[in-house]
Design a protein around this nucleic acid. Structure first.
Lengths: 207, 207
DNA sequence: GTCTATAGCCAGATAGAC
DNA sequence: GTCTATCTGGCTATAGAC
């Protein structure tokens, strides 16, 4: 890791799992947030604990007071992503009444991040892809895909579709695939166009 | 890298760029083939040159006679993937007459690899995702996505569709996304089902 | 061209003072 | 709880015999 300046803040605020936490633990949260951002921008493997400690403004040795190993930190980052994903889905449900509006709201929010996604890929998807090839097997990262998949399936079920699972797979796959293409080709417009086409398709599905 | 036994051969024969090559260069080819497989199974970052040398049955020091740096080997692997992809698309074009048959043939071939893809992801897609976050920028890896994308676009254009580019993006994105989901969830059936739905969708597009 | 031995570096992890 | 200094191992890359 040689570059020190990043193209502005990379993520909102992934992290913060438990509501009640001793106030000494805010360094733990800072470490997780820093790890989320640096992992996303540069990849898990390539990121060193020194990078994360520097990004969090914490000396390297102190990291081991909060996380015994790098793998422990990675697990904590996955949990933080899960928490944020759950919160986002809950917020979408609270803000919209019908299943169709909710589905479109979710993908509208993703389209708003097209610049970021075209630079670094889908935060959840690229993490899953990377963790997939790590030694310890599937792990909890799979939950990161199951969560939006199951959520989308429930929305399609609420629309009365018997093929809700297939539709959920299609909609999530189209987003994940668009993210892969957009980031590989560095083309945010590709993601925006495909998002619009997915929205149009969703309207035809409700019938 | 500690494990030595893999679940059988991982790829057919990625590699072999130039037709004419001195017969001392078959070690170079063996190294590229070995790198393709080990990169695919364990990821580029995690794979060491010692892993590749061992897989190719070549002593570590000798690797540097053929490739000055690890990055050079990575580039050679990308070129090998490009060659194989071009060959596969050419074979599909030779074996099928109409654009629709060609598109369906391509995705049928992918569905046949669902077990492998559900284990390690899409060979091209996971490589692109991983190289995306490496230091040297986009590089030639983007070509790996542009190649099938442009090819699909030509097929849809031949069908007389004005929105050929959008349709190409959709079909490739659905495959790439399915690969991400299938490998994350370790579910080959997901890929098979979505492939079938893409095939059905292709029939409606021709109209 | 091939291979052994090893230099040099850097990352994960620990020891222990404060 | 916090931080400095350091150990240890492994990986890229090189030197140089054959």
């Amino acid at each position: 890791m040689t570059d020190s300046v990043e193209p502005a803040s990379v993520q909102g605020s992934v992290g913060q799992g438990s509501v009640v936490q001793g106030r000494g633990q805010d360094k733990r949260k800072r470490l997780i947030d820093a790890a989320c951002q640096v992992f996303y921008a540069h990849g898990v493997e390539r990121t060193t604990l020194a990078d994360i400690a520097a990004a969090a403004g914490i000396p390297l040795g102190n990291v081991y007071y909060y996380f015994k190993t790098k793998n422990d930190l990675i697990q904590a980052v996955v949990e933080a992503h899960l928490s944020e994903a759950r919160a986002m889905l809950a917020a979408v449900e609270a803000a919209h009444d019908g299943p169709l509006g909710r589905l479109k709201a979710l993908f509208g929010a993703l389209a708003d991040q097209s610049e970021l996604i075209a630079t670094y890929g889908c935060p959840q998807g690229s993490l899953c892809t990377e963790l997939d090839k790590l030694p310890d097997g599937p792990g909890r990262a799979a939950e990161l895909m199951r969560l939006p998949l199951d959520w989308a399936e429930r929305q399609f079920s609420a629309l009365g579709r018997a093929d809700a699972r297939d539709l959920a797979v299609e909609v999530i796959a189209r987003y994940q695939g668009s993210a892969v293409l957009a980031s590989t080709l560095r083309d945010p417009d590709l993601l925006a166009r495909e998002s619009a086409r997915v929205a149009a398709w969703l309207d035809t599905v409700s019938a």
